[in-house]
Nucleic acid binder design. Structure first.
Lengths: 192, 192
DNA sequence: TTGAAAGTTCAAACATTTTTGAACCAAAAA
DNA sequence: TTTTTGGTTCAAAAATGTTTGAACTTTCAA
């Protein structure tokens, strides 16, 4: 027989508020193409007042231990959740990271940056394939070189952007910046 | 019987360079969780010197007409490709958008911004569910309100960021900005 | 030791997304 | 007209991605 509340006075079923928070993060997860279960996990942790033990996460969300284990591993790896050690309790407790700087920073460092930095290998492959092309006209080769240069430029721009992103997610954006932006329309907007 | 080259002197098979460009964009597409075919389409257009007609896209990539049609619709809708009208030719020609500002701008406007702006509805639902909770302590309610406030704050930050992103993808990032960033470490970094 | 509790792993089941291809429509050519 | 060309649509097939659950590992407690 199972009581309605556990020793921490937390009901087994989700409260209306918890469900709403979870729903929000499930939507966000789907926008980021992450599994639904990851959204559920983060939503539960985000709404919680205190760290939650693994078995309670499983029972309250009603997902399998396997899903929970994998999802929590992912959240921990990306810095979106952290493990909390509770004395005299063998279970693993989790809590959500709520600092947006760390959340964004973790995501960028974990997935975006490695991808951008890995691109150099592919740029070299493209370069080689252009140089090796016997049958192409000067003009065509020059065109391809030009496109490759654009790609490299994009990549560099994106890399430069990362620290900016992290920074502005943790500090107010200076008004002077918005002024700056008004002044440099370097290419005409497409008329909509 | 099919000749090796069409009237524009473009071979049916992909050149080594084209394949490399396509491979790059297929990887990018997969990182963005877009269908492989979309990466192939954009890669082909990106490498091309001139706009390519629909039927040639299909035959050169070796994908179905259906895939090509849907993928090109997506690329056009998001501003990553544009239709080019060629006099005396009934076919639809496509070319890649190569301005990073427009590419990024299109993506943000098409998918990110609508999502962020749609969140208000959900914030209200969360708010209501907190207010409606009879059985919660003052402390718990206050906690949930606090978390909701954090969420709203994130959302606003993200919205403010969009124009910044678009701007810096089209203009050099002023050095003064990097200086600024050194000065405001508003929260301590986690020691790694 | 042995037993039980807390989690992890991973193959199979299930679910979702992507691609194909055949039927279809519209516009130009015959 | 009728036929052909160029392309779209969409149901079904194929490919991917996610979740489950049972077997397993590890650690603590008796």
């Amino acid at each position: 027989m199972k009581s309605l509340e556990n020793q921490d006075n937390r009901p087994d079923a989700l409260s209306a508020s918890e469900s709403e928070f979870i729903h929000f993060f499930v939507r966000l997860a789907s926008a980021l193409n992450l599994p639904r279960s990851v959204g559920e996990l983060f939503g539960l942790l985000f709404a919680a007042e205190d760290p939650i033990p693994f078995d309670e996460i499983v029972s309250r969300l009603g997902i399998s231990k396997g899903s929970a284990s994998q999802g929590l591993k992912f959240l921990t790896k990306t810095g979106a959740a952290t493990i909390v050690y509770v004395p005299r309790d063998r279970r693993t407790f989790y809590e959500a990271e709520t600092s947006m700087r760390r959340l964004v920073g973790g995501a960028l460092k974990e997935t975006v940056r490695p991808h951008l930095e890995g691109n150099d290998t592919y740029f070299e492959k493209i370069e080689k394939s252009i140089e090796a092309s016997e049958d192409l006209s000067k003009k065509s080769m020059s065109h391809l070189e030009h496109r490759l240069a654009a790609l490299k430029n994009w990549n560099e721009k994106a890399l430069q952007m990362l620290p900016l992103l992290e920074f502005f997610f943790s500090a107010p954006i200076p008004k002077s910046l918005f002024d700056l932006m008004k002044r440099h329309p370097d290419e005409p907007e497409p008329h909509t």
